[in-house]
Amino acid sequence: MTYKLILNGKTLKGETTTEAVDAATAEKVFKQYANDNGVDGEWTYDDATKAFTVTE
Score class of each variant (00 low, 15 high):
residue 2 T to G: 04
residue 2 T to S: 07
residue 2 T to L: 13
residue 3 Y to V: 02
residue 3 Y to R: 00
residue 3 Y to L: 02
residue 3 Y to H: 03
residue 4 K to M: 08
residue 5 L to N: 02
residue 5 L to I: 03
residue 5 L to H: 01
residue 5 L to S: 01
residue 6 I to L: 06
residue 7 L to R: 01
residue 7 L to P: 01
residue 7 L to C: 08
residue 8 N to P: 04
residue 8 N to S: 07
residue 8 N to E: 07
residue 8 N to G: 04
residue 10 K to R: 12
residue 10 K to F: 14
residue 11 T to K: 11
residue 11 T to C: 15
residue 11 T to V: 12
residue 12 L to M: 13
residue 12 L to C: 11
residue 13 K to R: 11
residue 13 K to F: 10
residue 13 K to L: 07
residue 13 K to S: 09
residue 14 G to W: 15
residue 14 G to R: 10
residue 14 G to M: 14
residue 15 E to I: 12
residue 16 T to R: 13
residue 16 T to V: 15
residue 16 T to E: 05
residue 16 T to Y: 15
residue 16 T to F: 15
residue 17 T to V: 08
residue 17 T to E: 09
residue 17 T to M: 09
residue 18 T to C: 15
residue 18 T to L: 13
residue 19 E to M: 14
residue 19 E to Y: 15
residue 19 E to I: 15
residue 19 E to H: 13
residue 19 E to A: 08
residue 20 A to H: 03
residue 20 A to V: 04
residue 20 A to M: 03
residue 21 V to Q: 12
residue 21 V to H: 12
residue 21 V to C: 08
residue 22 D to V: 02
residue 22 D to Y: 03
residue 23 A to R: 13
residue 23 A to W: 14
residue 23 A to E: 07
residue 24 A to I: 11
residue 25 T to Y: 07
residue 25 T to D: 09
residue 25 T to M: 11
residue 25 T to A: 14
residue 26 A to R: 00
residue 26 A to F: 00
residue 26 A to I: 02
residue 26 A to G: 02
residue 27 E to L: 15
residue 27 E to R: 07
residue 27 E to P: 00
residue 28 K to R: 12
residue 28 K to M: 13
residue 29 V to D: 04
residue 29 V to T: 11
residue 30 F to M: 02
residue 30 F to T: 00
residue 31 K to L: 09
residue 31 K to A: 05
residue 31 K to C: 05
residue 31 K to H: 08
residue 31 K to T: 04
residue 31 K to R: 15
residue 32 Q to P: 02
residue 32 Q to S: 07
residue 33 Y to G: 00
residue 34 A to D: 00
residue 34 A to F: 03
residue 34 A to S: 05
residue 34 A to W: 03
residue 34 A to Y: 03
residue 35 N to G: 08
residue 35 N to K: 15
residue 35 N to H: 15
residue 35 N to D: 10
residue 36 D to G: 05
residue 36 D to H: 08
residue 37 N to K: 14
residue 37 N to F: 14
residue 39 V to T: 03
residue 39 V to H: 04
residue 39 V to R: 02
residue 40 D to S: 14
residue 41 G to C: 02
residue 41 G to T: 01
residue 41 G to I: 02
residue 41 G to R: 01
residue 42 E to Y: 13
residue 42 E to K: 11
residue 42 E to W: 13
residue 42 E to I: 15
residue 43 W to Y: 02
residue 43 W to G: 00
residue 44 T to I: 09
residue 44 T to K: 08
residue 44 T to Y: 10
residue 44 T to N: 08
residue 44 T to E: 10
residue 45 Y to E: 00
residue 45 Y to I: 01
residue 45 Y to L: 02
residue 45 Y to P: 00
residue 46 D to H: 05
residue 46 D to Q: 04
residue 47 D to N: 09
residue 47 D to E: 14
residue 47 D to W: 08
residue 48 A to S: 12
residue 48 A to F: 12
residue 48 A to N: 12
residue 48 A to H: 11
residue 48 A to Y: 11
residue 49 T to L: 13
residue 50 K to A: 06
residue 50 K to V: 03
residue 50 K to Y: 09
residue 51 A to T: 15
residue 52 F to C: 02
residue 53 T to M: 10
residue 53 T to A: 05
residue 53 T to Q: 06
residue 53 T to E: 05
residue 53 T to G: 03
residue 55 T to F: 07
residue 55 T to S: 09
residue 55 T to R: 06
residue 55 T to W: 09
residue 56 E to A: 07
residue 56 E to P: 06
residue 56 E to Q: 10
